[in-house]
Amino acid sequence: MCFFKKKPQSDLNQQDRDQIAVNSKMIDVLTTICKDEEFIPELEKLKEQITFLQPSPNHKVYEADKKIKNRIDDLKIALVKGNAKSDDVSEKAENIFEDIRMMIAERNVLV
């Protein structure tokens, strides 16, 4: 028999804080992987935005952070592919950057 207990607010807050930390570290990884100098300043800007996001015990905010992480993973694939220098991939990476910025803005509305 399973008993479900509601997580306390502090745990939920910590969960979101951890997710933000993971996202921030992922950007560091991307900065190392990326060989295209055009994207390095954009990555640094993105890292700053993500690192200073306000954690929240709101479940929707946590879900938004998870979505941001998924998009960062897609960006990783685009940058790894882009190291072969293709215009299509550069455009794809730009689109993903734009998506992530929009997701961060929407996430901040929920907080």
Binding site: D74, I77, K81
Partner: peptide, 9 residues
């Protein structure tokens, strides 16, 4: 994602 990145490389 990690598997895809590895294969892309």
């Amino acid at each position: 994602v990690d598997a895809i990145c590895k294969l892309e490389k």
